[in-house]
Computed example of a mutant assay.
Amino acid sequence: MHNFELQHIIDTHLQVTRYRDYAPNGLQVQGRPEINKIVTGVTACQLLLDKAVELNADAILVHHGYFWKNEPETITGIKYHRMKTLLSHDINLYSYHLPLDGHPVLGNNVLLGQMFDITVDARDDITDLLFKGTLANPLTAIEFKQLLEQKLHNGLHSVLFCGDNAPAVIKRVAWCSGGGQDYIETAAQQGFDAFFTGEVSERTIHIAREYGINFYACGHHATERYGIKTLGEWLSTNHGLETIFIDIDNPA
């Protein structure tokens, strides 16, 4: 498959034009024209790039790519080494950020809902990244923490939890993958028992305590493994491309 054809296929399926994002979605670094083998991963870090070189991949497909708003524009430091790796080995780099959080089938958030057996409420729009739903079986706040740790970290890492003044039993849950901690106030105002996301800020704990909502910070990487892996599997099933998911673990 031609590299620009692949971009068109993914752009169309993820409806990228509907999102205002913090980095360009699609083909970020052009490589060889013909693509057969793709390495997928969460972040285009040097370790993932090196793995793609070892596997002689034609392309790398990630959730976190390059050229973020407000980052330095110069190609120096680790950015230089990453670019050199891609360009010297003629590897294409594709990145899809918010479209892969919000997609109703392949997205990080809908997959998290399925993982935790949450019935997702109807959404007003595909670009709405605060997901809301109901647990199939209510859990205590501590039981839900343990479930998050087991499903997302295989029990190897703990989840940051604040349950001060919050309901002891959780039924209604809101969530947003990655750095979605600032959705907590909306979730609390709408009466949810709990809110989980990837990251935490200092202010988040005060908001959780004062609103009385259970809050869980599960790790940015841990909440965003699933969309990019599933997108790769979709490309393999529907377009005959070889895709290999490589998880470069990151506890943050």
Rank of each mutant, 00 (worst) to 15 (best):
Q15M: 13
V62G: 06
K145C: 14
W68I: 10
V105L: 14
E185R: 09
L14G: 04
D21G: 13
L152M: 07
Y94P: 01
D164M: 06
V62P: 01
D124L: 09
D21E: 12
G77A: 03
M83F: 15
Y226G: 01
Q189N: 09
M1F: 07
D21P: 14
N36F: 11
I228M: 03
T197C: 14
K69I: 15
L129N: 03
D101C: 04
V39E: 00
N238S: 13
V200M: 12
T119A: 10
G41T: 13
C45S: 14
V53E: 03
E54V: 14
L55G: 00
N108Q: 08
V39R: 00
F67R: 05
W68E: 03
F116T: 13
C45E: 02
P251T: 07
F196H: 07
K37W: 02
K171N: 08
R172S: 05
F215Y: 14
F4H: 15
L241N: 09
V173K: 01
A174T: 08
E199V: 06
N250G: 07
N56C: 12
H81K: 05
L6K: 00
A217H: 03
L47E: 14
P99R: 04
T197K: 01
G107T: 12
D21C: 14
A252N: 10
N92E: 00
N250F: 08
I170Q: 01
T204H: 04
N56P: 00
R203C: 06
Y96I: 11
L27N: 10
N92H: 00
I35V: 15
H89L: 05
L130F: 03
A59C: 03
P24V: 15
G107Y: 08
R172L: 01
H81R: 12
G191W: 10
I213Y: 07
E34K: 13
G41W: 03
K132D: 00
G180T: 11
Q114D: 14
L111S: 09
N250C: 06
L55R: 09
Q189F: 00
N70W: 11
N3I: 12
N154T: 07
L48P: 00
C162S: 09
Y226I: 08
Q15T: 11
R32C: 09
Y94L: 03
T134C: 07
H221R: 01
H13C: 09
L156F: 06
R32M: 07
K171C: 03
C218D: 07
G227T: 15
T17F: 11
A122L: 10
F196V: 13
G198F: 04
P72D: 04
L48I: 09
R203K: 13
